[in-house]
């Protein structure tokens, strides 16, 4: 029987860990998880680091995308509000004309 050497993945690089922390601290991940990951980040390997980096990047991307959707949504509401104001001004003018017509008729 020959001994088989077990090959372990390399530890995560300093660059990877720095990126993980950077993204992690910006993320909405619960703080308790953040702290647990920070406390464990020294022992993860490079593949695990890549996996979590990918997910954190995706999370932040989607957060930004969602934020933009919210902005567009609010802008749409603002535009609708402006339209309504414009229509109300027109209605106000129409009411005034009705007053005018009524008084002229009675005159």
């Amino acid at each position: 029987m020959t001994a088989t050497a077990i090959r372990y993945p390399e530890q995560a690089s300093e660059k990877q860990i720095a990126e993980i922390l950077d993204l992690l601290l910006q993320s909405p991940i619960p703080v308790s998880y953040q702290e647990a990951l920070i406390n464990s980040v020294h022992s993860i390997d490079c593949q695990q680091a890549e996996a979590i980096l990918l997910d954190l990047s995706r999370l932040l991307f989607q957060e930004v995308r969602y934020g933009k959707a919210k902005e567009v949504w609010m802008e749409t509401w603002s535009r609708i509000a402006d339209q309504i104001k414009s229509r109300m001004d027109a209605e106000l003018l129409a009411i005034e004309r009705e007053f005018d017509a009524i008084f002229r008729l009675r005159r």
Binding site: I29, A36, L37, R58, Q62, A69, K70
Partner: peptide
């Protein structure tokens, strides 16, 4: 668009937390 954005956001959140759970498990965290 807003709902779709939120769904993707939530999905990404769950994915990240799921990965975090796995990483925490294998690292003892």
């Amino acid at each position: 668009d807003l709902h779709e954005g939120f769904d993707c956001y939530r999905s990404a959140f769950r994915g990240a937390v799921g990965t975090a759970l796995g990483v925490l498990f294998v690292t003892g965290g």
